[in-house]
C-alpha cells in the first residue's frame, strides 16, 4: 500500500468512516471481550486509567471501582460514551494525548492501533500509551500497565478467512443502511428493503509476534501476551526508570 501522507489517509479511511457509522457501529458493540474484562476486573479499587480509542465506551463501566477516562477521535462516538455518567470521556488523538506523563495505573487500547497506517505510527502510538503510565520498578508490581488488543492476520475461523501470507494492509467493508439511526441497545441489524451503504475502513492486520515486536520497539516491557478470537493482545509496562 502506497501511503504518501498517513495522517490524511487515516482521516479519510478511518476517522471519517467512524464518524459516519458511529450509531450503527455502537449498536453492534456491547459485549466486552473476556481478556479485556479480566484485565479491568483485576485492578485494585481506586485505580485511575485510560481507555484510548474508547468508541462507544463499552469498557468504561466494566469495573465501577476504578476511574477511567475514555477518549476517542470520533466526536459522534464520544457523545455516546459520555451518556454513561459514572466515568468520563473526551475527544483526543492517541498520538497527541492531553495527559501528563507517568500518572496512570493502567490504560487499555482495544482495536485501535491497527488503524494507524505505517509501522512508525503504530510504534509511536504505543510509545504515547506507555508514556502515560506510572514507571515500573524492577519488582514490576507497582508500575502502570497497558492492555493492547489488535486484529490478527491469522483468522482461520472467521468468515473472512485471512491467513499467514495474506496482505496485511487491507480495506474492510462496513455495511449500513442509508440514514441508519441506531437506538442504543438495538440490534444494529439491517432489515429487508433497507438501502445498503458500504464504507471501507483501513486496517493493518497484525501477524503473529508483530505486536510484541512493536511494543519492544516502543521501549515497552511485555508482561503477558496471547491470542483471543481473531485478535492478538499483550499486557505491557513502560521501561524501568
Amino acid at each position: 500500500m502506497d501511503i504518501n501522507n498517513p495522517q490524511n489517509y487515516e482521516a479519510e479511511h478511518v476517522h471519517r468512516v467512524y464518524e459516519l457509522i458511529a450509531s450503527h457501529f455502537s449498536a453492534t458493540r456491547f459485549k466486552p471481550w473476556p481478556i479485556v474484562e479480566g484485565f479491568l476486573k483485576g485492578l485494585p479499587i481506586g485505580s485511575i486509567g485510560l481507555d484510548l480509542g474508547c468508541g462507544n465506551g463499552k469498557y468504561l463501566t466494566v469495573n465501577e471501582n476504578v476511574f477511567m477516562i475514555g477518549s476517542d477521535r470520533s466526536t459522534a462516538l464520544v457523545q455516546i460514551a459520555h451518556d454513561l455518567k459514572t466515568q468520563d470521556s473526551l475527544i483526543a488523538d492517541t498520538l497527541e494525548l492531553p495527559h501528563p506523563d507517568s500518572r496512570f495505573d493502567f490504560a487499555i487500547s482495544i482495536a485501535v492501533i491497527h488503524h494507524f497506517s505505517t509501522t512508525a505510527r503504530r510504534i509511536a502510538s504505543i510509545r504515547s500509551i506507555l508514556a502515560t503510565l506510572k514507571p515500573s520498578s524492577n519488582s514490576e508490581t507497582n508500575g502502570g500497565k497497558a492492555l493492547i488488543y489488535v486484529w490478527a492476520l491469522e483468522q482461520p475461523n472467521s468468515k473472512r478467512g485471512w491467513k499467514e501470507g495474506d496482505p496485511q494492509d487491507v480495506m474492510v467493508p462496513w455495511q449500513t443502511s442509508e440514514g441508519y439511526s441506531g437506538v442504543k441497545g438495538g440490534s444494529g441489524k439491517l432489515s429487508k428493503g433497507d438501502k445498503v451503504v458500504t464504507y471501507q475502513r483501513y486496517y493493518h492486520l497484525y501477524r503473529e509476534g508483530e505486536l510484541v515486536q512493536d511494543i519492544v520497539a516502543a521501549g515497552g516491557i511485555v508482561l503477558e501476551s496471547g491470542y483471543e478470537r481473531d485478535n492478538w493482545w499483550a499486557i505491557c509496562a513502560p521501561p524501568h526508570r
Binding site: P6, Q7, S71, T75, L90, I91, D93, L95, R121
Partner: peptide
Amino acid sequence: IANFLLPNHLALPLIMIT
C-alpha cells in the same frame, strides 16, 4: 465534552514520527 484535537499547525510534524 472537552475537545483536545490539535489544529494541524500544532500537531506533531510528520517527519518526527516517521
